[in-house]
Write a protein that binds this DNA or RNA. Sequence first.
DNA 1: TTTTAATCGAGAAAAATATATCGAGAAATT
DNA 2: AATTTCTCGATATATTTTTCTCGATTAAAA
Lengths: 216, 216
Amino acid sequence: MTTKEIKHVPEPVLRRLPRYLQILTRLKEEGIKEVSSTRIADELRLDSTQVRKDIEFTGIIGKPKTGFLVPQLIHAIESFLNWDNVTDAFLVGAGSLGTAILGYPGFNNYGINIIAAFDSNPEKAGGTIRNIPIFHIDKLPDLSHRMHVHIGIITVPAAAANEVATMMIDGGIKAIWNFAPVQLRVPKEIIVENVLLHASLSVLTRKLGQSIQDQK
Amino acid sequence: MTTKEIKHVPEPVLRRLPRYLQILTRLKEEGIKEVSSTRIADELRLDSTQVRKDIEFTGIIGKPKTGFLVPQLIHAIESFLNWDNVTDAFLVGAGSLGTAILGYPGFNNYGINIIAAFDSNPEKAGGTIRNIPIFHIDKLPDLSHRMHVHIGIITVPAAAANEVATMMIDGGIKAIWNFAPVQLRVPKEIIVENVLLHASLSVLTRKLGQSIQDQK
DNA sequence: TTTTAATCGAGAAAAATATATCGAGAAATT
DNA sequence: AATTTCTCGATATATTTTTCTCGATTAAAA
Ligand SMILES: NC(=O)c1ccc[n+]([C@@H]2O[C@H](COP(=O)([O-])OP(=O)(O)OC[C@H]3O[C@@H](n4cnc5c(N)ncnc54)[C@H](O)[C@@H]3O)[C@@H](O)[C@H]2O)c1
Ligand SMILES: NC(=O)c1ccc[n+]([C@@H]2O[C@H](COP(=O)([O-])OP(=O)(O)OC[C@H]3O[C@@H](n4cnc5c(N)ncnc54)[C@H](O)[C@@H]3O)[C@@H](O)[C@H]2O)c1
């Protein structure tokens, strides 16, 4: 790989890296300085070569016999995922799921910082959750332009999701984390990451159905 | 494929099927009787061959020029995912995320029916959410045995997740839908489906970081 | 010091997944 | 009735992702 060559990173790699990070953070707390790909792989039931290849993307090189330096690897993964410079985000839809996300303090460790929420229900406007203010949705266009927010989180009902996405994009948002079970119709330069819980469930229920069938 | 041969279904296929279902349900509401793989593919920005291949798993065969019958396909996918006979589930951890899930009526359409929730906080026990009773966690072993529940949902803090998983398995649960960001250590016959929101975020933040970098 | 054991990283191989090609069938159009 | 258009589904190909193999390197043990 030459100096400035941009190498494509497979999504499966991106999804595994935070899992490594989770182990590494724990090891660091335990005072462990070095870790091998074998150890990470064993904990996550993966192949050690895969772990090594994933780590290779971050640019960190290990040492035979001992492995990787824990703090160095943590830093490299966080930097690779862009989690070292936290990006501001808006959340739209302060319903039950939206409230849970707003209430979760952990996301700051994962690269995003929710600075405001919006809802179409006038009764929700004016309140705060964990010091995050909730505004009426009408305020979104103005505020997103002024605050240069780049990430939008959609937790509105499916029927409203596309409308909200359009507002976000008009407001300058570049990436959308979408929890509504619909396909967003957005320009292709907009990054969309869907959290499709029904897709997750489909894997679970199908496997369960199979395993029950197999027992017969 | 001979009569009783069990064909392995790739996970990516299982994750796409509910997305098809969502389109199909909408089309059915609009009174549309037939749909082609091309149309589904266009809406989801997929390849039509892939859609056809996925549908093939459900056993439905289409007709040239017109495609597939919408109601028939809906039924086939639901049956394939085991969503036609809804499975009872327990949820453990009636915190903010757990409450959101308990409050969501949509899961009954996705094959699961949450019949009870548990929490270690005595103050939460006794209440109900959407008519779902919340019990103290101590009641879990007894109740799960008596009620023959097969699915467990974990929405407790990461530190408590493994302990809860063990209790669930002892109680006869066969499949776990895990929202805690930890690797559950369970026997291999137990089905675990993780919802790793930090993994989803890692994809988003990395891509965003890249796209911002590329513009420079 | 020599031996042993563990690991990395490069390259090859295998497996899984996605995409392309094309003949045949069915509906609509001429 | 012939032609065009669209689609399915079988097969082949391409791409992506995972796993395997192995020599080199390092630390610890003998
Ligand atoms: N709650 C869950 O467990 C769960 C699970 C899976 C998926 N989801 C999805 O997440 C989304 C939200 O679910 P929920 O349970 O929080 O629903 P909810 O009804 O509790 O919350 C939706 C919120 O969005 C607001 N809203 C509606 N239209 C709006 C608009 N145009 N602009 C701004 N705000 C608007 C409503 O006022 C409400 O506060 C839905 O798409 C749902 O399918 C939720
Ligand atoms: N809220 C979110 O948006 C969000 C996002 C990503 C991941 N998660 C994960 O979901 C889980 C729950 O998050 P949350 O925000 O709802 O937390 P929370 O603190 O609001 O809820 C946790 C609940 O679990 C209960 N609990 C704790 N230990 C228990 C035990 N041993 N047995 C039974 N109940 C127990 C607590 O009493 C509490 O009610 C966490 O693992 C968190 O990392 C949450």
